[in-house]
Design a protein around this nucleic acid. Sequence first.
DNA 1: GCCGATACGCACCGATCGGTAGGCGAGGAC
DNA 2: GTCCTCGCCTACCGATCGGTGCGTATCGGC
Lengths: 122, 122
Amino acid sequence: MRGDCEDLVADCRLRAATDLFAHRWDPVVLAALRLGPRRRGELRVAIGGLSDKVLTETLRRLRANGLIERQAYPQAPPRVEYRLTALGESLAAGPLRALADWVTEHGDDLLAAQEAAERVAE
Amino acid sequence: MRGDCEDLVADCRLRAATDLFAHRWDPVVLAALRLGPRRRGELRVAIGGLSDKVLTETLRRLRANGLIERQAYPQAPPRVEYRLTALGESLAAGPLRALADWVTEHGDDLLAAQEAAERVAE
DNA sequence: GCCGATACGCACCGATCGGTAGGCGAGGAC
DNA sequence: GTCCTCGCCTACCGATCGGTGCGTATCGGC
């Protein structure tokens, strides 16, 4: 999976970046963590719609990519907080933000174009 | 699939945007088309690594999202060109560009973080 | 009349992804 | 002692995705 870059063309770096958004909830969790460290349970209810298992996988991936870090407090009911790393923060503040801004500005155009295309496709 | 937004939380617009990058080759084709209109065959060799069928699907999706448009010339061997729409151009110039820039700047950090995490995970 | 180039379409396959359902371990509350 | 919470794990399942391989329509060249 890493060896792709050798036999592919120029865009493999782009691919490496877009892969960070490839899983449905990764960007959402990233965005949620921009507001500050959050506990696992908080993320679940704050985001809503993602299953318990998927949240685990998502957090694991984000950690594996060095975008977030995990901090466990030795408490009675276990308490675990997740926060953005510097790398994750830079991704969230840059490209992720740009995406959010773009949708804010062009979201209506996007929806209109999608519906127009649907109509054409009969 | 459109109804998600009602029962999900705030981030559904973000999701709508990240979905545009959800398929592996969509962003790459988008980036390739930034350089100007391209024929189907040109895209295939320029990108390299994506199958014929997947290119078809990718182009279809991008069209369905109103990001590119197709122009067919009635010629001997069929000639079809794909180009960015205004919407596609804005996406490519904004968020996609931001992603590419981010990778250029933080790609090494990303790789280092991934490898560090791999080592920890034994 | 046959071949080749181009832009598709279709059938099939294995891998992956998101989701459901249920279990586990550790400690506090009662 | 029993229940509860919280974080996490383990099947299992259906849908989707990317990929391979092969077929097809059209036209020009030879």
